[in-house]
Design a protein around this nucleic acid. Sequence first.
DNA 1: CACAGGATCCACT
DNA 2: GTGGATCCTGTGA
Length: 198
Amino acid sequence: MRLDYDFYRRDVVVVAEELLGMNLVRILDGKRLVCRIVETEAYRGPEDKGCHAYGNRRTKRTEAMFHPGGCAYIYLIYGMHYMLNIVAAEADQPQAVLIRAGEPLEGVEEMQRLRGLKTNDQRQLLNGPGKLCQALAITMAFNGYDLVTGEELFVERPQTLPDYPIARAKRINIDYAEEYKDKLWRFYLAGNPNVSRS
DNA sequence: CACAGGATCCACT
DNA sequence: GTGGATCCTGTGA
């Protein structure tokens, strides 16, 4: 079952936690690339100093975060890596969930090809937000993409959710966010070998 | 127009 | 554990 607008249009912290265990599906040239979401972070503008939309900063770049929940927000970081975020909450509330890591389920060979790694270690395919985008061929073309109606990228609830306890932690690499850098807005499946950091 | 810096990754040690 | 790659965005002149 594909997740609907009602799922996404809630508080971003709730959405971030509940996205754990869901299946992220990318249809690339008819091929199914599927992974289980194992690590997320919530960014909760306008009050969150770690969020690009802090203070309701609304620019061409952050525009998608102001859209109603259920679409993608993509941006480029360090000049080379794309980040996949899923927009949450209602329109004009700039909240988004960063998808930080996944567990490969289908289309592993294609993911390996897209990653172009030397190793065959499957844990290294999706254990970081930039890696995940590279393995699923997600680029700026998906910025603003509707994940509820789209054919090439969406999220499904699996028949049975995986049996891992959920861990909460501080978000990664936002040292500048002052009192918001210590918020426990990072969620991951504890013990899953595909998380970027435990 | 120029510039500083970032929600990262990989190879190598 | 370290350093380099690499480029877009926001800001201020």
